[in-house]
Write a protein that binds this DNA or RNA. Structure first.
Length: 288
DNA sequence: CACTTGACCTGTCCGC
DNA sequence: TGCGGACAGGTCAAGT
């Protein structure tokens, strides 16, 4: 599921819901990387207080008072849903896109001292959960390789263009999806931003003009900011920390809109495969 | 080496 | 209805 806007939406929700809570119990069916050591769970997770919830790229970082951090990647179908008690808690089941928890895709259940729960669900089991010292988070493989945050205030159009010089002969779509170029872009926002900038996804990186990179930079930031404002995109699985859907798909211009008219020119949107992924374009606006 | 293609998993949808 | 195949928001390892 989640790309940067979805993970950021989960982060914001979780931050308000779990910060300050103390972990009392953890049950799990050993999702990838967890627990790296049962001893660590007992020593650095049980009894720990949540001090902060951060995000880097598509990864969530739940900092603990023990100076350990839960590092969580939701991959395609991961969900992190908080449930308070049945009567007064946040995210009453009736408000939710999903039903009673735990359910058959629940992999980890964190129980807090006040009796509330945080559920990690992951239908396809691609996601991972690691418990590592906070100071070592920047040293894990993913963090060492991942590119800059595209929404950072200091990240300029020039910076954006320069990042792509490392992938000169690949398609612009493959480069956008490459997390070492720029962090957080996935299939939805790649298609949406390429449509916005009127660039065909299969154009090779070294054929784009400076002006086109500038357009793409602006469109990517605009589309991601809008998506955060709308609480992310729910196509199927994605939900926020309260189990509720995001509404960006109501505003999507090309993604999953094949057969419908381009909102700019009316030409029928088509779908094909690019960089191994389903790809949506307006064939009139985005010429190869 | 740079780039593209499978593999990882489960579930759903679509055509025969 | 049943069944096979394609496909799904991501990232690696293994291929070419």
């Amino acid at each position: 599921m989640p790309e940067l806007p979805e993970v950021e939406t989960v982060r914001r929700g979780l931050s308000g819901l779990i910060t300050g809570r103390i972990v009392k119990e953890v049950t799990h069916d050993t999702p990838k990387g967890f627990p790296n050591a049962q001893k660590d769970v007992e020593e650095f997770l049980l009894g720990a207080k949540v001090t902060d919830v951060r995000r880097r790229a598509k990864v969530l970082l739940i900092d603990l008072s023990t100076d350990y951090t839960l590092v969580i990647h939701l991959k395609m179908t991961g969900q992190l849903v908080y449930r308070g008690d049945a009567v007064f808690g946040a995210g009453h089941p009736n408000d939710s896109l999903i039903g009673e928890l735990p359910d058959r895709s629940t992999r980890v259940v964190f129980t807090f001292e006040d009796g509330s729960h945080l559920y990690f669900n992951d239908q396809r089991k691609f996601g991972w959960v690691k418990l590592i010292p906070t100071l070592e988070v920047p040293n894990i493989d993913f963090m060492k390789k991942v590119g800059p945050e595209p929404l950072a205030k200091t990240f300029s159009a020039d910076d954006f263009k320069t990042r792509f010089t490392r992938r000169p002969k690949t398609s612009i779509k493959a480069a956008l999806l490459d997390q070492t170029v720029v962090a957080g872009v996935g299939n939805i926002y790649a298609d949406e931003s390429l449509w916005g900038a009127k660039i065909h996804p299969l154009r090779l990186v070294n054929t784009l003009s400076t002006q086109e990179f500038k357009q793409l930079y602006q469109e990517l930031r605009a589309v991601m900011n809008l998506a955060i404002q709308k609480g992310g995109s729910t196509d199927k699985n994605y939900v926020n920390a309260e189990g509720k859907r995001g509404s960006y798909m109501d505003f999507a211009r090309v993604f999953r809109r094949e057969g419908k008219p381009c909102p700019r020119c009316g030409t029928t949107i088509i779908k094909f495969k690019a960089a191994g992924r389903g790809t949506h374009i307006c064939p009139y606006c985005q010429k190869s």
